[in-house]
């Protein structure tokens, strides 16, 4: 299948933080996300802990179960094995780091159960 990831994950992509600062995707740090979310009126950062990683019926995909936020709401997402998530204090991580590096040139750690990923939710769900 044509399994192209969004081009902003490609090494060298220019990312604009909420304060206007430009950084390359591979240079982003946990603080960049936290500070950008602080500025945002609508978005907030939530911690999403990887609870399970299962294989999918879709080739080259996995189903990742997260426990999201303080209420530990269970959320499942199906993504390609090379899809990178940003792990708190660790950086980009995917289920198949070799493939991520091969396809995107983005250095990745191995995403594992127990890792806490940065995710977004709305500040007010009312």
């Amino acid at each position: 299948p044509s399994s192209a990831l969004p081009s902003y994950f490609m090494k060298g992509s220019i990312i604009q933080l909420a304060d206007g600062e430009l950084k390359r995707v591979e240079d982003l740090r946990t603080e960049d996300f936290l500070q950008s979310a602080e500025v945002s009126k609508e978005l907030k950062i939530d911690s999403s802990t990887v609870e399970r990683i299962d294989s999918s019926r879709t080739p080259d995909a996995v189903i990742i179960q997260f426990s999201v936020g303080e209420h530990k709401v269970q959320v499942c997402v199906e993504v390609l094995v090379e899809y990178p998530f940003f792990v708190f204090g660790q950086g980009w991580s995917s289920c198949c780091p070799d493939r991520t590096t091969q396809l995107l040139a983005l250095s990745c750690a191995k995403l594992s159960v127990g890792d806490v990923c940065i995710s977004l939710t709305l500040k007010s769900l009312r």
Binding site: P6, S7, Y8, F9, S13, I14, I15, Q16, L17, A18, L22, V25, L28, D32, F33, S36, S40, L43, I45, D46, S48, F66, V68, G69, H71, V73, V75, V77, F85, F86, C117, I118, S119, L120, T121, L122, L125
Partner: peptide
């Protein structure tokens, strides 16, 4: 050169809360 907003890179995992 395209510039992408920071939040593009973060998955939006929105739980449906009932409280």
């Amino acid at each position: 050169v395209p510039v992408f907003p920071w939040h593009s890179l973060v998955p939006f995992l929105a739980p449906t809360q009932s409280d």
